[in-house]
């Protein structure tokens, strides 16, 4: 009683549907490999912003004076550094201020060893899973008798490294 020819249209409809759905599945599964492209953009923006902030903190406001960054690093003034850095990088042209968080290290050379000094500890928003960017800036410290931080009294070049993330 049942004739094979009677189900032919149904079978072909199913076949067409399967073909299309499979294609979509393949397309979605392959493009998802390429989509990480756009996660680079917030990183790029954050890195540029952080570099700008460090460069501007290292620019003296008047000719012949020391930059704010050099003064903070030389005096190991983490509170001053943090408040200035955050006020620069959270400022926006309009609307509420941004919400960026940071920590900082200073790398220096002591004899043959490269050592790190924790300049500013991360705050409690740091869990280790944030996609943080690292920005750095060289600072040259003049020789200063009696300095005990970093490599002591001698004139030295140290590297300030800032880790910046959006909470």
């Amino acid at each position: 009683m049942v004739n094979d020819a009677g189900q032919l249209y149904t079978m072909e409809g199913v076949a067409a549907g399967v073909i299309m759905l499979l294609t979509v599945y393949i397309v979605i599964s392959t493009t998802s490999i390429y989509t990480p492209g756009d996660t680079h953009i917030p990183d790029m923006q954050l890195e540029q912003l952080g570099s700008d902030v460090l460069a501007m903190m290292d620019t003296p406001d008047t000719n012949g004076t020391k930059s704010a960054l050099e003064t903070f690093v030389n005096a190991d003034d983490d509170a001053g550094f943090e408040s200035m850095f955050l006020s620069y990088c959270n400022a926006k042209a309009s609307g509420a201020a941004d919400d960026l968080h940071m920590s900082a290290n200073v790398t220096y050379r002591d004899g043959n060893l490269i050592k790190e000094h924790q300049f500013l500890a991360p705050d409690n928003t740091w869990t280790g899973r944030e996609s943080a960017v690292r920005v750095t800036r060289w600072v040259q410290l003049d020789s200063q008798p009696g300095r005990t931080t970093y490599a002591g009294a001698r004139a030295q070049a140290v590297l300030v490294e800032v880790l910046l993330w959006r909470a």
Binding site: Y9, L21, T23
Partner: peptide
Amino acid sequence: LDFLAGFTIFMLALIMV
């Protein structure tokens, strides 16, 4: 009936896609 069923399945799949 067969044609209707086949075509409906095709259209449904097409709409989903």
